[in-house]
Write a protein that binds this DNA or RNA. Structure first.
Lengths: 243, 243
DNA sequence: GAATGCCCTTCTGTATACAACGCCGCGTGC
DNA sequence: GCACGCGGCGTTGTATACAGAAGGGCATTC
């Protein structure tokens, strides 16, 4: 079972467009030319517009009647709001997970975390995907499917920022994840929530400050290639070697 | 300035379809015939499908490739998840509002609440709209636009259930709202969060139980007319008169 | 020289046409 | 008698055509 071989045009277009919007290959403020975009994606305008409408509802693309679609912009306020919302949801998730997760679920999460221990040779994209997967897995352990769904929507909108952030913060992430994991394994909800809150809030401060102080060249062309460059470091002991 | 006189077809279609989906005039499980629906709405299939795609992304409509669109269904699990998520978001909102709301914002909210005191002659739809508006206004005072946005999306999905719930619970709502308002005015975040949590959790238990125990005729045809019937009661003193 | 109005181009908004797929009923074969 | 296959009908999926609006450039006028 490689994949469902029946994939409608619009589905492929949708996924491609989403990927383009997430990593800002569609630049904000710039009107998307439907004709050209449809040609590039090898389709017609009808499925293209259907896909774009879905992305509008998800907040990845904006739409102004008569003027067409354009990619969202990431100002400091939106980033702050999204990070704050993410913190709220993830803290709630980990608290619920402490109460509801099965032992096998926690064991599985620990295994996943262990598998991510060595990030040597991985790209920023891959490491960030692992980070996101860890957080989503916790949300999954909360048992609330809607919570997972909302969180995924938020993740898509801040993924670009997390890529940037992850370029410099790889090493501190792991320890914080371990602390969250430990509290979760101990079913210590207050500790888990506190650890999660601290984990996200620290990132939020750094990220929002960066966006606010004019580093709004977050979406510069050519930036994206950095995310596919393998990282230098090895296991988490690398941190002490650098110290 | 009555309204922006330039309203594209798709926008009108979208709002009409959303209204139909919210109050389950589109019945769940039943395939929507695009041709017929387009004819009914006086448009063609293209804008109809664009609107439906937006509703899919919002979770009001589901879509299965090759088989078309149909209205979401509200099983007990979804309702539980949505209420739980709503509680998480609203508790966070009221906590943030305690810290951030301006005095004028709080005054405005108090005025709104006072204006809702008398529900004599109002329909369930109207009273529920007021209830929702109160909660959304609190979220607005949190200063987090994304939080408001997410909450509105959730509200649309559970509005039908709140209509049903509100038929019997009108009177208790008001006192609870006053308690939340008082804690918010006193900037007492823990009390406000606790009041909000209790307010929503109480409703959640009742509502989920009702859905779970086979009262899944929540979306029976003809049910909707009840929501447009004026209520009997008067001001909140009515409660003591009944007691 | 600058500003404003008009025309042209290009793009969006919507309808419609056609192709492909799924669904249902019937017939045939085992 | 049951199951499998086939064909017709209806629906969805996609392309394309056309109309209307927005934006830009040029000319004209003050």
């Amino acid at each position: 079972m490689e994949e469902a071989r029946e994939e409608p045009r619009v589905e492929a277009v949708y996924r491609q467009l989403k990927a383009m919007a997430v990593d800002f290959r569609l630049r904000p403020g710039e009107r998307l030319n439907e004709g050209a975009l449809a040609r590039d994606l090898g389709t017609s305008r009808t499925p293209l517009r259907e896909a774009l409408n879905r992305l509008v509802a998800e907040g990845l693309v904006t739409f102004r009647p008569g003027r067409g679609f354009c990619c969202r912009s990431l100002d400091a306020e939106s980033v702050f709001d999204l990070y704050e919302l993410r913190a709220v949801l993830e803290c709630a998730a980990v608290g619920l997970a402490c109460a509801r997760a099965g032992d096998d679920g926690i064991a599985g999460l620990e295994a996943t975390l262990a598998a991510q221990a060595d990030y040597a040779g991985k790209t920023v994209r891959e490491v960030t995907a692992g980070d996101e997967a860890f957080h989503i897995a916790i949300a999954g352990l909360s048992g609330n499917g809607e919570l997972v769904r909302q969180l995924q929507g938020i993740n898509e909108r801040i993924r670009y920022i997390r890529w940037i952030d992850m370029q410099t913060r790889v090493r501190t992430t792991k320890g914080e994840h371990r602390a969250i994991m430990a509290a979760l394994a101990a079913r210590d909800a207050p500790a888990a929530v506190a650890a999660m809150q601290g984990h996200i809030a620290k990132r939020m401060d750094q990220v929002v400050a960066a966006v606010r102080e004019g580093y709004s060249s977050i979406y510069v062309p050519g930036h994206a290639v950095l995310f596919d460059r393998p990282l230098a470091g090895g296991s988490d002991d690398a941190q002490s070697r650098h110290g």
